[in-house]
């Protein structure tokens, strides 16, 4: 298994009140697979992905990436893990407004050991002609394309997408999903996606449904739908 999560627990304390967000979650993904986590707000999907991405820590449990337990990593090891192995795509793109498209991608390529060629990646996401534009001059879909380009420029082993189509209309969402599918195919990148949208689960090898900090259902899709055919 490329990714294996075991008995993951996490709680947050607000004053005297402690809220358990993850109650012993387990899941896994093989290399090159696409995983989707479905669930309502507050079900713990973002917390789970944050811990997998190395930007949050758990109370107990294990997160194995290629056999290494990242929950045991020290801060600098986690930094190296994020730096070399994980790419992030956010719902609201999180581009730096005063950097151009090209420069936003350079933010990541600048610290990568073997980054891909910026122009090639921009071409792959269909944004090469807008390399010198600023984020404000782009549509939502275009900004998400840049965000994806920024995530894949380091050729990560794991791409974590938090509601990548949450702020987009249907046709733009479909384009973004096509792009993610293409990246999965071309680069062999393992993708884990959070979404509210059940239709997207048709694109995944494994689908996990969460509720109140627990995985309540795991589905393995025998056949994967092409993003071009997706409807909602």
């Amino acid at each position: 298994m490329f990714l294996k999560v075991e008995s993951l627990k996490k709680s947050y304390k607000t004053g005297e009140i402690s809220t358990q967000v993850l109650k012993g979650v387990g899941m896994c993904l093989d290399r090159g697979e696409v995983g989707v986590i479905l669930g309502p707000s507050g079900s713990g999907k973002s917390t789970l992905v944050n811990i997998i991405g190395g930007i949050d820590r758990c109370d107990s449990g294990r997160v194995m990436i290629e056999g290494a337990d990242i929950t045991q990593h020290k801060d600098n090891q986690l930094t190296d893990y994020r730096r070399e192995q994980v790419g992030f795509v956010f719902q609201f793109y999180n581009l730096i407004p005063n950097l151009t498209v090209g420069e936003n991608i350079e933010v990541v390529s600048n610290i990568s050991k073997k980054p891909l060629d910026i122009d090639s990646v921009l071409k792959a996401v269909g944004m090469l002609d807008k390399k010198f534009r600023f984020p404000r001059e782009l549509s939502g879909g275009e900004q998400q394309r840049v965000s994806i380009a920024r995530a894949v420029i380091k050729n990560p082993k794991l791409l974590l997408c938090d509601e990548p189509t949450g702020a987009l209309d249907f046709s733009t969402s479909r384009e973004i999903l096509k792009l993610l599918q293409q990246i999965n195919k071309d680069f062999g990148t393992t993708i884990l996606m959070i979404t509210h949208n059940t239709a997207i689960s048709a694109l995944a090898n494994r689908v996990y449904r969460m509720r109140s900090g627990e995985i309540v259902e795991e589905t393995i899709n025998e056949s994967i739908m092409s993003a071009e055919r997706i409807e909602w």
Partner: peptide, 8 residues
Amino acid sequence: LMKVFGYR
């Protein structure tokens, strides 16, 4: 963001 991306 830089921290998320793995900047030291």
